[in-house]
Design a protein around this nucleic acid. Structure first.
Lengths: 227, 227
DNA sequence: CGCGCTATTGAAGCAGATCAAACATCGTGG
DNA sequence: CCACGATGTTTGATCTGCTTCAATAGCGCG
């Protein structure tokens, strides 16, 4: 897990010190909240297993901002205000490490290499959101879904899982809320991709059959009109 | 300026040490690039005066991700990769401090209070983008522009400038690229807001006349159909 | 087995894009 | 100083991709 959230370059003895400050583990049931908007920020979370979603809401509308999974760090957005500014919900049973921030901060001060990792993690989060911004601002629906699938596939691959066999843990509605589209639109697009032979879907199991085509779509190459 | 980008809580002697590591000042002409996508990341930038825009681009499409102005910090997104992932362009003559990152990093390690400020700055940037994400994913055009104006006004106010008199430094096209809309759409909306008496605009000078109404719009309260 | 939630598909409407044309603004050089 | 072209702004007409509303179908789970 650390290989992902605070990757590489740490001496084994440093690792041991990190282990020490990691607080409790928390087991979440499907639908359980890790934190809610407005909650006091006291710790970062590192996902050990399972999928979550993070979402902002206002006036009954939700924007899903991400789908953290094993190896991802949560709570970085809460440092500034001392309060969480989004919800984090488990999409399935999850295992999460709690990392008390004050202790972490003290440790980090004493360990330059860990501090660098931490800064990179923060910066990577900014980059990730910048990519989403680009997606929501510019991409057509088709391209958004392609980007989503390609991205998900890459994250699976980075975790040593089969990149073409995606077991979606989120609903169509969640995907829509993440991509700025409606559930119906996601359904239609999936049907279209399926008919074109690029993927096959049954319920929440999705197989990527033509990754190259999807990647091209994600890059903005328009699909030929499906006669 | 430091009051904004690394606010409060620093002892005067700390301030002095920061001043020491600040590298050169850079003067930018209108249209000049502070950095470009792919440039090696070596320093953070703190804006002293003037307005810039930051933008990501791919396949000829631009997404403006922000309009940094005096007191804002630039380059946080580049820490992760060691390369800039967006362009930063001056919208008018600008004064910018260069902060060599390696020296900054060393300093920060030795100054816990500064480190905290830095982490808050990083986290605030994540929050800022999360807000943009919400905007692009959910808000109608009208609401987007209202949010933009209200936000800009607030940033002016935070800098002690008149909050109702906005001298826009960016083109309609830039605003559109920031809000995920077209230039034409921005024009129409401005005209609509003007006719409704909420603002007055001549060229790039904009006066907010009914801030409350705009704020309500920004919050998602729909405008009554303009008969 | 039947209830509730999630997913799928169809039909109609609309917000915003696109295309097009006129107009204002501004710096530049004759 | 004005004519000029370049750039930015405004407004209109039309088009379209996505939403909305609605109805049906599947699935998982007690």
């Amino acid at each position: 897990m650390n290989g992902l959230c605070l990757p590489a370059g740490l001496a084994p003895c440093d690792m041991a010190r990190i282990e020490q400050i990691v607080g409790g583990r928390r087991r979440l049931a499907r639908g359980e909240y890790l934190h809610r908007t407005g909650d006091r920020f006291q710790q970062l979370y590192a996902v050990r297993s399972g999928h979550l979603k993070t979402l902002c809401h206002a006036h009954g509308v939700n924007q899903v901002t991400g789908f953290p999974m094993a190896g991802d760090l949560l709570g970085l957005d809460a440092i500034a205000e001392g309060r969480h500014v989004c919800d984090a919900v488990a999409l399935e049973p999850c295992d999460v490490c709690e990392i008390p921030f004050d202790r972490f901060h003290a440790l980090v001060t004493a360990m330059p290499s860990l501090l660098e990792q931490f800064h990179r993690a923060l910066s990577r989060e900014i980059q990730r959101q910048q990519a989403s911004l680009f997606l929501l601002g510019n991409a057509r629906a088709e391209q958004r879904l392609a980007l989503f699938l390609v991205g998900l596939s890459a994250r699976y691959a980075a975790r040593g899982l089969p990149a073409a066999q995606l077991q979606l843990r989120m609903s169509r509605e969640d995907i829509g809320a993440y991509l700025g589209l409606t559930m119906e639109c996601i359904c239609r697009l999936l049907a279209r991709f399926r008919k074109a032979g690029w993927i096959s879907v049954t319920g929440r199991h999705l197989t990527i059959q033509d990754g190259a085509r999807l990647a091209a779509l994600a890059e903005g190459v328009c699909a030929e009109p499906l006669v």
